[in-house]
């Protein structure tokens, strides 16, 4: 498993986040050595085996420039290096939409975007939508229409929803549902999500 193969991992000791981040199957194998006290120390020491490259990009209007592991996803760069944890990791395979951000103004899944590819481009995350203390109209509409329950998928839903209105695809419920099909909500808040998007589109608020 991964824990025996330091070349494939970037563990810096086992934390809750590491366990969560490595997935259930691997987590089960990783948790076992934690039970006896001293064994945790036998886990691989932090080894950075990757090739690093310099990237420069704009994130929410601010220029950033840093060295990253060339394998890193844009999602991990945003969350783990730059602290923009509003963008969520769901499936990490482009199937759930929780990690949706805007790259040069268009929605993409940041989990399948190699961070290196974002160099020289403009990234907008959920943290970049509000103007100071004033929420983006779509954020307000999600609150007004109770368009969430647990909230985990919400940042991704809102990033897609903004694009749905902006691209003129919020013309009717079917079109909204089709456009939003790349964002999964396990709580089933879809009715509220569609209502929020309809509301913003109908009020011609900036999407």
């Amino acid at each position: 498993m991964t824990s025996r193969n330091p070349g494939d991992t970037q563990h810096s000791g086992v934390t809750r986040r590491t366990v969560l981040g490595t997935g259930a199957g691997v987590a089960a194998a990783t948790i076992l050595p934690l039970q006896p006290d001293a064994q945790a120390q036998q886990l691989p020491a932090p080894i950075e085996t990757g090739t690093t490259i310099r990237v420069s990009m704009s994130v929410n209007g601010q220029a950033v420039s840093l060295d990253i592991d060339s394998r890193a996803s844009l999602l991990d760069l945003l969350r783990e290096r730059l602290g923009f944890t509003g963008t969520k990791k769901g499936c990490d395979h482009g199937q759930c939409g929780a990690c949706t951000i805007h790259l040069d103004g268009r929605p993409v899944v940041s989990c399948l975007t190699l961070a290196a590819k974002a160099s020289g481009r403009e990234v907008t995350t959920i943290e970049g939508l509000a103007s100071g203390e004033t929420l983006h109209p779509m954020q307000t509409a999600f609150i007004d229409h109770d368009a969430l329950q647990c909230g985990y998928c919400t940042p991704g839903q809102i990033m897609s929803a903004v694009a749905c209105v902006h691209q003129g695809q919020a013309t009717n419920r079917d079109s909204i549902r089709e456009f939003m099909s790349g964002n999964i909500c396990r709580c089933g808040a879809y009715a509220g999500i569609v209502a929020a998007i309809e509301d913003v589109a109908a009020n011609s608020r900036e999407g």
Binding site: G97, T100, P107, V108, V109, L112, A163, F179, S181, G182
Partner: peptide
């Protein structure tokens, strides 16, 4: 074929 996010990639 794909979600709108993937079609942008």
């Amino acid at each position: 074929a794909a979600s709108q996010q993937l079609r942008n990639m």
